[in-house]
Nucleic acid binder design. Structure first.
Lengths: 281, 281
DNA sequence: CCTAAAATGGAATAAACATTCCATCAATGG
DNA sequence: CCATTGATGGAATGTTTATTCCATTTTAGG
């Protein structure tokens, strides 16, 4: 009988990380259908947590009985028992402030890196919350219009802003939006911008202290009558006043390091909105 | 008959924030036991999400039938129907653009690009909240130890991960941590990694679909006995199993675009923690 | 290629569950 | 203080769900 070699003496893990490690370790030794369930479980933990045996079975392409066998092969009593572990993982997912402090006190003294993580997570959350409220949708729409109407979009961002423009260049490439990533490498920026035409647009991203190359590239673009959209952190920014549309981002910081979460979310929004608006035509 | 005045015409909310608002608004008008359930629901949303009618009833001090009545009083078909809304709150998928558009049309409102922004903001917030809870501080500490102990840190990340590594290269440069940004430009990656020594470390970042260059660079580093720290999204990732320490990041996505907020926060944490640990010595 | 053991699918079963119903209790208005 | 209406508790019910069992298929060894 196949079910005979269940190892009941080996206690099944009650916490998710241990369970995941166990599943991953046993995937290669499991028969076809059980392995199929194993990989599904690791890829869709939420489905296991919320679904019924029938729904999970259908979704993963096996029979409900296979789920029970899989659970028992890992040492659990049945699917329900296994499911409990997947649910426990989600239980206090949004920890209260007190819990967070407690957690820090327990692990905290030893792990300063855990503290840093919470700090940067805080900064990211505050930045995003701020973005939601402060960004004017009308200006956002205008920026999207300008960029969607351009032949080619030139992405200008150096130093801290370079990760943002490089992401946009990547995403626009995948979405078939023609763009040029203007990087400062070997002073090529100035040459790249020489090709710009009045039917193109520049997206310039810069925060204090404003990189002089970004500012001069923005001016060069203006001189060639290209449209200019700016993302920056203050109305006093040298690229705010000269822009056709400018978007304000104020990132929260932790330990002097400014978050990038809000700028990144805005970059994604712009990219997808531009691609979407072009698709309409 | 008491049950007669259920307003079936008023559609019950399908998203948690709206439901919470509805419950809060109706608490004062509800009879004693139903009000009791209402306050319990607002205080223990996780219990409603995971529990059974019987368990929730016992925990909140009412009868199961009261839970059904409560659900129906809010316009739901029954307890199960209400429970779905509490569960949706915990799933890590952000409501799609279409769902939001529909909701927007009903409530009348803003611009569509504003809608995208909210969606990406949601995804970012969820990702960061998830990171807080799921990342094991012990593993984080180990990763910091490894990187802090290295002569030179090689940063490997392509496509979606490139913005992350490029940020780290920038920040490490400012913090005087010696690092090399390994980019795929012109296939230079392989040559760059040839200089690596056993006293160096590689930080490899890759998400599905895993870029083959990143994987082979990680293997090359191992072959030269350098330490390897991985940031990836699944235990099945080809760079997870071979790493000395691996950190899991699961970003929420909106419209198929995964957030980068959590990875970015982790990148900042690592960078600052490594610089901090070096400064101690 | 044949045989034995293991794995699998699917129907049968038993347990758990939400829901309904009804008797009892409390509140409200006359 | 009584009568009527609404609210509540708890048992009964019918449905959904996990689990078990067995016939059939697949795999591995000789």
């Amino acid at each position: 009988m196949a079910d005979a070699d269940i190892k009941l003496d080996e206690a099944a893990p009650r916490d998710f990380p241990a369970l995941r490690a166990l599943i991953a370790a046993r995937v290669p030794t499991l028969p076809r259908r059980l392995a199929q369930v194993a990989t599904y479980a690791l890829d869709h933990p939420d489905e296991i947590a919320f679904g019924t045996a029938a729904s999970v079975a259908q979704d993963s392409g096996v029979q409900p009985s296979t789920l029970v066998r899989f659970s028992q092969a890992l040492g659990y009593q049945g699917f329900t028992d296994l499911q409990d572990v997947f649910r426990a993982r989600l239980r206090d997912r949004v920890p209260s402030y007190e819990e967070r402090l407690k957690q820090l006190r327990e692990h905290g003294g030893a792990s300063t890196s855990g503290l840093l993580l919470q700090g940067f997570a805080d900064a990211a959350e505050r930045s995003v919350a701020d973005l939601r409220v402060k960004l004017d949708p009308a200006v956002l729409d205008r920026a999207v219009d300008i960029l969607a109407g351009a032949d080619t979009i030139y992405l200008v961002g150096l130093r801290r802003s370079f990760p943002i423009t490089s992401y946009m260049a990547y995403a626009m490439g995948k979405l078939n939006v023609r763009s040029v990533l203007v990087d400062g490498v070997a002073g090529l920026g100035a040459e790249q911008i020489n090709f710009i035409s009045p039917r193109d647009a520049v997206l310039a991203i810069s925060f204090t202290p404003y990189a002089s190359e970004t500012v001069s590239l923005a001016h060069a673009a203006r001189a060639r009558q290209a449209k200019l959209v700016s993302i920056t952190d203050s109305i006093f920014s040298p690229i705010a006043s000269i822009a056709d549309a400018w978007l304000e981002i104020v990132e929260a910081d932790f330990e002097g390091f400014r978050s990038m979460a809000a700028t990144m979310a805005l970059a994604m929004t712009l990219t997808v909105a531009v691609a979407g608006r072009r698709g309409e035509k």
